[in-house]
Design a protein around this nucleic acid. Structure first.
Lengths: 143, 143
DNA sequence: TTGCGTGCAAAGGTTTTGCATGGCA
DNA sequence: TGCCATGCAAAACCTTTGCACGCAA
């Protein structure tokens, strides 16, 4: 039995809004507040449920900053969605999202599967660290 | 004014227990339960407070898994502060956290640094996917 | 004796869930 | 009409905090 999926006004509103948020990150709370301030009614539970679905679909990335902060999301543009398999790197310093296509990373995917039986899900996986620019900046500051 | 530091029974108990946990990861809850089951009384608040102190002191590491999972810690031996890098894999199906020490993954770390200028932070990075057991289970169900 | 660490319980904030209702197909 | 998605409020969850007490120095 196939589950029927309905299109709703809230879905459109949210997806539409997230489209404008390209390159920016946002929390569930912020999305909720945006609609509340616009006078449009979208419940916080709906926001969470929609965001979760979009993460599963790979349309947005979910970030984990630290224990206390609320979860943080970012919309992935069309080019990203259509492109080949890749991983995301997130700079902990400047917050930049790097979108990395690289054979060597694909190699890791195979390695984990072959040697560890683990099937990586690149849609959901984010590698955290420090990007080249920020590393250079820090180096300069310490010099 | 210097703050005096007391040595307490609970401190010893916890540090002692963590010493046995070398190479394994654990949550605050697990430490708490360990003592509860042993009939020794160590409050959960004390566990959290001690773990926090140990993180500050650099004796244990704290891992950020995701929003829903409790924070995860690992004891670092006195000697091997840096020699212990590894990554975490998390199964999206059963929620199991896999603790992976693997040269090939360390290779990825170097590759990202050398070729992409990106310094990965293993404390915060979690690779999501499906573990071997769950993959086998799903396969069985679909057959 | 002094004052730090502990333990309990309550608070804190984010996210999830139960259930009745509304809206899409 | 049938059933999914929504919204509200309550629950769940991990973690922190206030406060009185016990214990180390």
């Amino acid at each position: 039995m196939q589950k029927i999926v309905y299109k709703t006004k809230q879905q459109d509103l949210i997806l539409n809004y997230l489209g404008q948020m390209q390159g920016k990150h946002f929390t569930a709370e912020e999305v909720y507040r945006h609609f509340a301030e616009s006078g449009v009614s979208v419940g916080i539970a709906t926001v969470y449920r929609q965001l979760e679905k979009l993460v599963t679909d790979g349309k947005i990335q979910k970030y984990f900053i630290d224990d206390k902060s609320p979860a943080c999301f970012e919309y992935l543009g069309e080019d990203c969605l259509n492109s080949h398999e890749h991983f995301h790197l997130k700079c902990e310093s400047c917050g930049k999202l790097i979108h990395l296509e690289c054979d060597e990373l694909s190699g890791i995917e195979n390695h984990l599967k072959e040697d560890h039986g683990f099937t990586v899900n690149p849609l959901r996986t984010v590698l955290y660290g420090i990007c080249a620019e920020c590393a250079a900046k820090e180096k300069g500051e310490n010099a």
